[in-house]
Simulated scan of single mutants.
Amino acid sequence: MSHHCHHDHASGSGFRVLLVAFLITTSFMVVEVIGGLISGSLALIADAGHMLTDSFALALALAAIRLAKRTPDNKRSFGYQRFTTLAAFINAASLLLIVGWIFIEAVQRFIEPEPVMGPTMLVIAIVGFAVNLFAFWLLHRGQQDNINIRAATLHVLGDLLGSAAAIVAAIIIILTDWTPIDPILSVVVSLLVLRGAWSLLKETSHELLEGVPNSVDTEQIAQQMPKELTGVINVHHIHAWQLGSQQIVVTLHVHADGSQSHDKLLASIHRWLYQQFGIQHATVQLEYDQCEQFDCEPHPSHSH
């Protein structure tokens, strides 16, 4: 039972980290919107838009951690563990939309450059960078095996890059008055964010589509188990999927030769699955003959 306690503790600390990051991000987003409107800087308003999705991402992650802890019921026998994956998927999808919006906005700024108050923009961008750096440090310390916290960290990293770009753009505007640097840097940042969002979208889609987790090799289970465990003839009907960031579930049929006692063989199969792949939740169906395929009596000799 010890791993359950550890998991609860981990999700508790994850919740606190996310809550602090959420409060910091949301507060600064308001400052950035006001600053963007005063200075006329699209970079700041775009960064504030980015921070709005950060707040949304963090709020989703917080809700997901709370929901995932709810106990299973008659309607959801696995509980709400998959909700965290769903939240991370929505986060990744929202990042792709924002990147698209920034591209369109940047093109418009190239066509019609607008005046920007460099000094005001610089001050707010520096404060934003400090705020994002702190939020990123907090989240990066959290468990990175939690797909939810990783999604939130990715959002904040995008912000951190956005703030850095805004600082550079502000300095260039102050020194040279060349405003196109603003949209140019916002596109560069968007491309970096796009890469992370795409890989997260692939990973969460795979999990939502009941894909086999990366740590499990069904081919290896089918080939190695009969070689390594006495009493196993073959393994078939193997299905593996992932529930949340922690739990892998496997179901399989094992054709046994009857040389081992039922319970002993079952125990050794569970132990083997755990040692090879870290699988803790396996449903194993033992079959002692293939008679059900031929519709014959299991042991006709005993009927006399």
Results as ranks from 00 to 15, higher is better:
Gly12Arg: 04
Thr25Gly: 09
Val30Lys: 03
Gly35Cys: 04
Ser41Lys: 09
Ala43Leu: 01
Ile45Phe: 09
Asp47Ser: 13
Ser55Cys: 09
Ala61Leu: 03
Ala64Phe: 11
Lys69Met: 02
Arg76Asp: 01
Leu86Lys: 00
Phe89Val: 01
Leu97Gly: 02
Ile104Arg: 10
Val107Phe: 05
Pro119Cys: 00
Ala130Ser: 08
Phe134Glu: 09
Ala135Cys: 00
Ala135Arg: 06
His140Met: 03
Gly142Asp: 09
Val156Leu: 11
Val168Thr: 10
Ala170Gln: 07
Ile174Gly: 00
Trp178Asn: 00
Asp182Ile: 03
Val187Trp: 07
Leu191Ser: 06
Leu192Asn: 09
Val193Lys: 05
Gly196Ala: 04
Ala197Arg: 01
Ala197Tyr: 05
Trp198Ile: 15
Leu201Tyr: 01
Thr204Arg: 05
Gln220Trp: 02
Gln224Ser: 06
Lys227Pro: 04
Leu229Trp: 14
Ile233Asn: 06
Val235His: 03
Ile238Asn: 10
Trp241Cys: 06
Gln246Ala: 11
Ile248Gln: 11
Val249Ser: 12
Val250Trp: 07
Thr251Pro: 12
Val254Phe: 08
His262Trp: 08
Lys264Phe: 03
Gly278Ala: 02
Gln280Gly: 13
Ala282Asp: 05
Ala282His: 08
Glu287Val: 04
Cys296His: 02
His302Gly: 05
His304Trp: 00
